[in-house]
Structure formats: structure tokens, C-alpha cells
Amino acid sequence: MSGNMNITLKVWRQNKASDKGRFETYAIPNVSEDMSFLEMFDILNEQLIIEGKDPVAFDHDCREGICGMCSMFINGRPHGPLKGVTTCQLHMRSFKNGDTIVVEPWRAKAFPVIKDLVVDRSAFDRIIAAGGYISVNTGNAQDANSLPVAKENADHAFFAAACIGCGACVAACKNASAMLFTSAKISQLALLPQGAPERNTRALNMVAQHDAEGFGSCTNTGACEAECPKGISLSNIARMNREYLGAALMS
């Protein structure tokens, strides 16, 4: 733990959903620049436990930027100051000695706070359950190479499918809209021939679920794209709009 940075953390504390919540300030000495942001929180928590206080609850799991579980709003930005990086991959070398860092949970009506920095993102699961799949029961598939897919389409489908469902798009959007998330799945499946049979119902149902969850609508600020740790493109939202309008007007 032999680092030479002194960091002040202003962290949102909220004991449970019904609590009002408040900021608390903590000083963390001897932070190493090789530490990840979450490892700094580990140290804070150890410190709090030894002091007999309640540690800060925060979501995290894989700590390699792929599970999508970590979710901190750091100095006014989801996942902190770097581009294309989740909180767990953010390292303290991105900060300076003496910095004060403000850490808040994702804020959205559809993402209620559970405790401290932990929010409930099950709305995303429900959006997927509304149509983010191809209806193919196990065992129904034909040979994988019987259906060629143009490389360009496959690549774009993959780029859209790279979404990790972390919710940074919602957190960054001034409207707390989940259009980037929703459009990524709609795009992935719209770009592949396998997704074609259900494209209309998929677009209609997923957007309806998105709205029902209480997410705002998209005003194309592009904040989601800029903050997405996986670089999901705004063009997916345009594609979703096409899919949706096509389905609503033509099907």
C-alpha cells in the first residue's frame, strides 16, 4: 500500500432505499498510482471496518471491465474521467495527489438506490426479456455455416453486442434515457439474418418496455456514446428508430 498520493473522497452514503442519504468525506492517505479506483475503495472500507464504521457498499465483480457491475459516478462522469474504461479499470494514475473526488450512485428513476452506491438495474433485464432475443429453442439450430453473414454486418452486430449493460449511458444522459442500451440489442439482432423474423415485435416491445420503466427519451446529446465504456455507437439509436418506426408504421 506504499503509495504517495493523498486523496479526499466525498462519497454518497444512504443506508437503504427509503433513506434520504448524504455525502460523507473521507481522507485516504498513501494511495498508489497503480491501484485501481475500486482498490482504493477496498482500502477505505478496511479503514472503516477497523474504525468500527459501516463500509461503503458498491457493486463490482469481475474487475476487468466486462461484467458491467461496477457503477460509480465520479466527479460528474460515469466511470470517471477516462474514455472507454469502466470504474474497475480506472487507475489512480488518472488522478493527482491532493485531489478531492466526488462519488455518487447512478441517478435515474428507473435505477433506484439500494444502498450507498448500489442501484437496482433490473430494468435492463426486463427490457431484454421484452424482446432482446431470438426465439430459438435449444436443439432447433441448423449448421452454423449454413447461413453466411456479411463480415461487415457481423462486425457491426458484434460492436453493438459488446454492450456490458452497466448503465453508464443512462447515468450520463441528461434525460436518464436507456436508448443506447436498448438500441444496442435491437441493432445487434437487426443486423443479423437470424434476427429478421422477429424484428418488428422486438423493436416495438423493447421500446415499450424502455418507456414503461421510466427512462427518459433520447435528445441525441451523444453523452451516452461518449461515456460508454465499450464505445457503443449512437448510430445504433438511429437504427433502432428506423426499426421502431418501420415496425409501427409498416407492420
Binding site: 462522469r77 466526488v102 455518487e104 435515474a108 428513476k109 434525460n175 427518459g216 446529446t221 453523452a223
Partner: peptide, 24 residues
């Protein structure tokens, strides 16, 4: 309506980092 999608506001928002002010 969009404003109501975030009933509790952030204490700190660094909007300029990710979007143009006109769009906001």
C-alpha cells in the same frame, strides 16, 4: 418528462466532458 426521469439530481455533473452544451 425527461427531467422527471431523474428525480434526484447529481451533486456534480461534468456535462461538457461528454456533450455539447447546445444539445443539453
Amino acid at each position: 418528462k425527461n427531467r422527471s426521469a431523474r428525480p434526484v439530481a447529481y451533486a456534480t455533473v461534468d456535462g461538457k466532458a461528454n456533450s455539447h452544451w447546445t444539445s443539453r
